[in-house]
Write a protein that binds this DNA or RNA. Structure first.
Ligand SMILES: [Zn+2]
Ligand SMILES: [Zn+2]
Ligand SMILES: [Zn+2]
Ligand SMILES: [Zn+2]
Lengths: 156, 156
DNA sequence: ATCCTATATGAAAATGGTTTCCATTAGCAA
DNA sequence: TTGCTAATGGAAACCATTTTCATATAGGAT
């Protein structure tokens, strides 16, 4: 019985090594925080959560690691208009399910929604197919966000 | 016969004044550049285009004006991942038609497409309706972008 | 277990798009 | 024309992110 996140057997070990990246304790710690946290974390959020237990992981490393993880497709990077990048674990083993975002332009609150996703994704796939053909563009990812006022900001 | 973009009769005069903003020559010049230019301009792009004819309009004013225009809904602000905001005239009188974007993650090229827009928008409207009800969220705008590799970057 | 080398790291400094400050100018209502 | 207030420009401040560079470490080879 192999423990699922054992240092040398975790499922992301393969992904890392396969792409020529080394598996370091810092990278594991960051991935761990991301998989345990709700919401959309900024680099500094992660630094804060990590610091008590790993006081020697610097902000620089967090930025670099987030970059690697995004390249590997393990996380997504978002811009919700609050002037700092936000990160979220991608779908997949242990990852969250596919969802899109509602963003309040007033208070910057972000709501994840999974309703309607199926229809949306179905249409997106068709659109993607058409766009690929017409523009010879190899689509790898999509972004859908709705902007407006949240419940609280609306009544004011 | 009233000239369409005469200083005091232009169609955006009303919009400005109605919201308590003053119509200044700088604002007109910026709006003018945006309506005459193809593509997705950054604040500095606009500054460069403006400078020869209006050497006394500063970058600061451009940023402030773009903010006002976005608030008025006259322009949209985008993040295409090249670390600077990009602006584009919204639909409407003299504005471009509604479109979405294909973004090359390698060379940052951006392709506007209008194909499939009708189906997309139709679905989006339904989704919006549902989301409004479920989350009591007042949706005012949406963003759809596809990421991938453009024709040129794909063959490498 | 030990070496070796390319990769990863942290601290500090640099970067650069955007915002803020403040003294001056200019819309526009009366 | 006058007066009040919003708008402006230049310089300085801001601040998330990136770069630099000397040091540490992962992990394949011995
Ligand atoms: Zn809100
Ligand atoms: Zn989310
Ligand atoms: Zn490209
Ligand atoms: Zn466009």
């Amino acid at each position: 019985m192999v423990k699922n996140n054992c240092r040398r057997h975790g499922w992301w070990n393969i992904k890392f090594r396969g792409c020529g990246y080394r598996l370091t304790s810092g990278r594991e710690a960051i991935l761990d925080i991301l998989s345990k946290s709700e919401g959309h974390l900024s680099a500094e959020d992660i630094y804060m959560k990590l610091h008590p237990k790993y006081p020697n992981i610097g902000l620089t490393t967090i930025y670099r690691t987030l970059d690697v993880l995004a390249n590997l497709g393990l996380i997504f990077k978002f811009d919700f208009g609050d002037k700092r990048a936000r990160y979220e674990l991608a779908e997949g083993p242990k990852g969250a399910q596919h969802h899109h975002h509602l963003i309040c332009t007033s208070c910057k609150r972000v709501i994840d929604y999974t309703d309607f996703i199926d229809e949306e994704v179905k249409l997106l796939n068709e659109t993607e197919k058409g766009l690929c053909q017409k523009y010879e563009f190899k689509i790898t990812n999509h972004l859908i966000q709705f902007y407006g006022l949240c419940k609280i900001c609306a009544k004011r």
